[in-house]
Design a protein around this nucleic acid. Structure first.
Lengths: 193, 193
DNA sequence: TTTTCCATGTAACTCGTTACATGATTTC
DNA sequence: GAAATCATGTAACGAGTTACATGGAAAA
């Protein structure tokens, strides 16, 4: 055993795609970019690298297929160990809560460094974006086989909607506070300790 | 113009911390790890690298301070251009919707590849975790200065709660389906595929 | 005929993390 | 005296993205 690779959601994604059907690289990337783009995001080069790793670990097999004069295809198939790994990764993924990404919350922490009106205006733009995203959320094309895209999309929509509601409520609250005489006691210069 | 660096939330985070008060590296990392850990996550080495980049770009100044025989401190202060950058990054961050991380949704897509009971059991474990996280969500220690940690934490809690509710509802629905005669057409063993 | 699609990949770049290295001071 | 804390950083590693390179086939 030369190396112990730690598998993550990308491995789960690829194994899942290959569990449904053996495919070659272009097909896999196409599928992820077009069908799964709302749930998963993986670039071509990343997929190739992951596929290599999975192959090196014996989780998938590669078979060369030539069609006419076209460039040869590498058809990837999941192996028996690969199915076992997929099963484990899937069960773990379902049972695990992901750590929340901080991206959007950093700004909230420092919101008081902006004039109230400006901050609220910015948050309004965020709200508008969220509304747009929620409004034209096209249900993805019909899913084939056992793929349950709807569930994932439904989850994303639910969370986004909660995000939206929180934002709307918060903006209202901030605006109400803005009209009060002394919104924040610590507005005066106050070194942090 | 030698290079155009693209600033992200990490730059925003560090500039925000330094806007509040000039600090040296250890203080900054300590602050992020202890006070902001629930909202932001940045490792020591990453912070040092970012601070170097910000310094190279003239966004922060470095001043050496010696205290007794201790190792010299590098005290970082935000500059005028740094404040301008902070302002822009902050406004943009507040006005922008972050792309959702896919981590937890990959599994949902492939859920049907697991026996229903097993999948539901896994989701129950996720639910239990979420409940725990929501239950002992200690309000962070009193925030000093203009830092508005509460708002960010409140947001995280709101989203988590929505996540939890969605999960609970979904589990119920899946269980209801499981007791029906023919929950999914392709559930039966199919010799052809 | 030119563009787009099919189909493969790789090199360079950047970034974040882990683990290590160093040494003084304070606390138990 | 030992352990934790203060305070600095760097080297190695792994991983993801961008951009590039190649060429046949189908479509406009």
């Amino acid at each position: 055993m030369p190396k112990t690779t730690t598998w993550d959601e990308r491995a789960l994604l690829l194994l899942g795609v290959l569990t449904t059907q053996s495919q070659h690289g272009y097909q896999i990337n196409d599928f992820i970019e077009n069908r799964l783009c709302r749930v998963a995001d993986m670039k071509k080069a990343t997929a190739y690298a992951q596929l290599d790793r999975l192959h090196a670990a014996g989780m998938i097999e590669i078979e060369i297929a030539q069609v006419g004069n076209r460039p040869p295809r590498k058809v990837y198939s999941i192996t028996e160990p690969g199915r076992a790994l997929f099963h484990d990764l899937l069960a773990t993924n379902l049972a695990t809560v992901e750590a929340p990404a901080f991206a959007g919350d950093i700004g909230l922490m420092f919101m008081n460094h902006l004039p109230r009106a400006e901050a609220i205006a910015a948050l309004r733009r965020r709200l508008a974006q969220l509304d747009t995203l929620i409004a034209n959320q096209p249900m993805p094309p019909p899913h084939g086989g056992k793929l349950n895209l709807d569930l994932a999309v439904d989850h994303i929509v639910a969370v986004r909607r909660a995000d939206r509601d929180w934002l709307a409520t918060t903006i209202d609250r901030l605006e109400a506070e803005a009209t009060l005489p002394n919104p924040h006691p610590q507005a005066a210069a106050n070194p942090l300790s």
